[in-house]
Design a binder for these strands. Structure first.
Length: 561
RNA sequence: AGCCUCAUAGUGUAAUGGUAACACACCGGAUUCUGAUUCCGUUAUUCUAGGUUCGAGCCCUAGUGAGGCUACCA
């Protein structure tokens, strides 16, 4: 991976700003942060943000990136999510070192800032109902109208806020709002809510608090407290920036971070909404957050996607303000590219048909010596047992070969990869008309040798020795969704779940593959490779893959993507 | 509708105001004991209309199109 995408030559607009701030002396040390809310598992979209924030920290001497949990809403957040997020960030290869923070540890500071704003006459406790507030906010065409509580004396708001904190009110009875501009064309500035009452245990602070700060209020304060220099977030927060700056300006904060927005990652055929992923998990449509059909980091990990490939992909898609949809083929290219270079090969037959080598004794071979990687000799070779009966892929034989079919058929030759060239001498069918047995003869002396004069052998196929192959459950994964915009489909996104996203077959796998991992199962995805799904999906698990399915796609030229 | 943001091959991105390029995808060819990989090649791009300028993808104006905002979520 040493192409231009990873070289420092190109700077995206955010890195450009960082470089300028360094050059002009505005900052001498850069601090970024990745601030997930622990309300679900991380997905490939988060990976883009992680690579950006931690990437900038890695690229600039003395810079660092914090991992901060933005846990200001106790109703949605759980400890399980905190753990999974830490694990996923680490797995991607990033390190926050000692800079692990929780917004919930700043609750006292947020509260002090709120009191400060009230004293300054810039915040007030509103006792209107939710509906009243909504109506009074107006809409994009009509300005809002002031709450009757807006201009009560400061002391009264101070008292009221203290009683909110003390738990004297019910949920929804009152909120603390900033006093900004009810006529602003930017709805975010129409006296946004700062604090609301939530009676729910917090994963970190328990029941110490019954009032919780809103994102718009808390986030700039969190950034300032941690001396974040560049607070990078997605485009939907553009309209929130004036508010972000307002809080930085009016609260007693120790630094002045700058919010910069970039486009979130959208992938074709991929649902990235946390809400929808939650629905899939809770509804039992998938096996869990780490189901390999999900675009979660943990799902991709189980699917066999290497972290390096994901990171490289994130660098390649770049950082802009253009909200587009990236073809998932770009991601798959990186996965293929990485696996192709690093994964040792093994053979497995997914849809086996037995071949009897009738003249086996003419040139018997105890074990075929097969390279672990076709281009990398350093990966060595392995001995694959072979005997007079082998399994081959059903689709590697055609009773009546098509024009461009190069593999086995009646009286045709094919190479058993690493072994002999064989010639088909006959076949049997079962009652259903399916091929049940293929008869063949080996061509003695063809191991490690070119085809003899006059023998046409244009393909090498994979196989498994019938005597030693192990039966293994192989799961075939395809995309979970069949269209790229599930919302557009009738009946919501669940109606476009791909029924073929998961199939299971019993395959014949070579002993070396079976021995690699006792909990072994195989997966196939459209990247075209088998990858190991060790059941405990250890970060270090080495994927292995076989060519079979890699070729299936191009053989059939199936569209369907 | 008001405000904010964005607009470069099919997709994602590059290009101090100076020859529009890279990757993926596609198509064609060569090599190949994986129809993979590798290698070579083809096709195709600045939303529209004005303006500034010797010169505009870049600056200005208007239009068009797309996304965001009208939560006691983040």
């Amino acid at each position: 991976m040493s192409d231009s995408a990873t070289s420092p030559a190109k700077l995206d607009f955010i890195r450009e700003i960082v470089a300028t701030d360094l050059a002009t002396g505005k900052h001498d040390k850069i601090v970024t942060r990745f601030p997930p809310e622990p309300n679900g598992y991380l997905h490939i979209g988060h990976a883009k943000s992680i690579c950006l924030n931690f990437g900038i920290a890695q690229e600039n001497p003395g810079a660092k990136c914090h991992l901060r949990f933005d846990d200001t809403n106790p109703e949605k957040e759980e400890e399980e999510y905190v753990k999974s997020i830490e694990e996923d960030v680490k797995w991607l290869g990033f390190d926050w070192e000692n800079d692990l923070y929780f917004a919930s540890n700043y609750f006292d500071f947020f509260h002090d800032c709120a009191v400060h704003l009230i004293k300054e006459g810039k915040a007030y406790v509103d006792r209107q109902s939710l509906e009243e507030m909504r109506a009074a906010r107006g809409n994009v065409n009509t300005p809002g109208t002031p709450s009757p509580f807006r201009d009560l004396p400061v002391e009264e708001h101070l008292d009221r806020f203290a009683r909110m904190k003390a738990g004297e009110f019910k949920e929804g009875e009152c909120v603390l709002r900033a006093k900004i501009d009810l006529a602003s064309p930017n709805m975010n500035l129409r006296d946004p809510v700062l604090y609301r009452i939530v009676r729910a245990p917090h994963h970190n602070t328990g029941d110490a608090w019954c009032i919780y700060p809103m994102y718009d209020f808390a986030h700039p304060l969190e950034d300032a407290l941690e001396h974040i220099t560049h607070s990078l977030c997605t485009l939907e927060f553009e309209n929130h920036r004036p508010l972000y700056d307002w809080f930085i300006h009016h609260c007693p904060v120790p630094s002045k971070p700058r919010q910069i927005e970039f486009a979130r990652l959208n992938l074709t055929y991929t649902v990235m909404s946390k809400r929808k992923l939650l629905d899939l998990v809770r509804g039992g449509y998938v096996g869990g957050w780490d189901d390999p059909r999900l675009p979660t980091i943990s799902g991709l990990r189980r699917r066999g996607y290497p972290a390096e490939a994901i990171v490289h992909f994130c660098k390649r898609v770049g950082i802009t303000k253009f909200n587009g949809v990236t073809d998932v083929a770009l991601l798959e290219f990186d996965v293929r590219d990485f696996l192709n270079r690093t994964a040792p090969r093994r053979m497995a037959v997914l849809d086996p048909v037995k071949v009897v080598l009738e003249n086996w004794s003419a040139d018997p071979l105890a074990a075929a010596e097969i390279p672990n990687h076709p281009q990398d000799p350093e990966m060595g070779v392995r001995q694959v047992p072979i005997s007079e009966e082998v399994w081959i892929e059903r689709e590697d034989f055609m009773e009546v070969p098509e024009k461009k079919f190069f593999r086995l058929g009646p009286d045709r030759h094919v190479r058993l990869k690493g072994g002999h060239i064989i010639r088909c001498t006959g076949f049997e069918k079962d009652a259903a008309g399916e091929i049940s047995l293929i008869r063949a003869e080996i061509l003695p002396g063809t191991i490690g040798a070119d085809s003899p004069e006059g023998v046409v052998c244009k393909a090498a196929i994979h196989w498994a020795d019938a005597a030693t192959a192990v039966d293994a459950e192989v799961r075939l994964y395809d995309r979970l969704f069949t269209v790229q915009d599930p919302d557009a489909a009738e009946g919501g996104f669940l109606s476009v779940l791909n029924p073929d996203s998961l199939k299971s077959v019993t395959a014949k796998i070579e002993p070396a593959l079976a021995a690699a991992d006792p909990g072994f199962a195989c997966q196939f995805d459209r990247t075209g490779y088998f990858v190991a799904d060790s059941k405990d999906h250890q970060p270090g698990a080495k994927p292995v893959f076989n060519r079979t399915v890699a070729l299936r796609d191009s053989w059939t030229k199936q569209g369907g993507r």
